[in-house]
């Protein structure tokens, strides 16, 4: 049963084509709306600030309507799966921790800084997707991040968000 579920598609290609076309349409509408506020005509000394964005928005809208129509057309191609559960699971296994990682770098509650968060991210990734021993994990994650630290903070003096450990070491 589980296997059958894994083979199942998450929406057809057609469904997602429609979603994409609608998103494009929305983006186009946003562009058109703000361009009207800026002034979208051809003034006495050439186009106003909103002139080009206005037409760009209009073209986005037209193109997305055409894309929408062609997506709605029945045909075998549209029934193909967009992504299978198995595939989506893989993608989420990477994307969700990555988003958590970015949130850990800096957030209103408690920021870990980019270095600590990176050590954790690399370690978790290696542990759950690579099944490495903790020794190897420690060496790779801490080693890589330490190299980045030296390169960015000390060598090139590009300040990145820092966390509690750097504060202890006197880097803030």
């Amino acid at each position: 049963m589980d296997e059958a579920r894994q083979e199942k598609a998450v929406g057809s290609l057609r469904l997602w084509e429609i979603v994409a076309a609608l998103l494009f349409l929305a983006a186009g509408a946003l562009v058109v709306y703000d361009s009207r506020r800026l002034g979208s005509t051809w003034g006495s000394d050439g186009p106003e600030a909103g002139y080009f964005p206005f037409y760009i928005g209009v073209i986005i809208c037209i193109a997305s309507v055409i894309n929408l129509i062609s997506a709605l057309k029945p045909g075998a191609a549209g029934d193909k799966p967009f992504v299978t559960w198995e595939q989506l699971k893989m993608v989420l296994i990477v994307m969700v921790p990555y988003a958590v990682y970015v949130a850990l770098i800096a957030n209103p509650l408690y920021s870990l800084g980019i270095y600590e968060a990176s050590v954790i991210f690399i370690a978790v990734f290696m542990r759950y997707l690579g099944k490495y021993t903790w020794l190897k994990i420690g060496a790779v994650s801490v080693g890589t991040v330490a190299a980045f630290f030296v390169m960015f903070e000390i060598w090139f003096k590009v300040p990145l968000p820092k966390g509690p450990i750097e504060a202890l070491l006197g880097f803030q």
């Binding site: 990477v94 980019i114 991210f121 690399i122 290696m126 997707l129 890589t144 990145l160 968000p161």
Partner: peptide, 29 residues
Amino acid sequence: VPFAIIAPVILVICAIGAYTVHSSMFDVW
């Protein structure tokens, strides 16, 4: 280099790269 090692490192590099452009977390998102 095995994927499980290089992939997280690349993802970290991407995050750092996005941050450094304007020193902004918004850019990373």
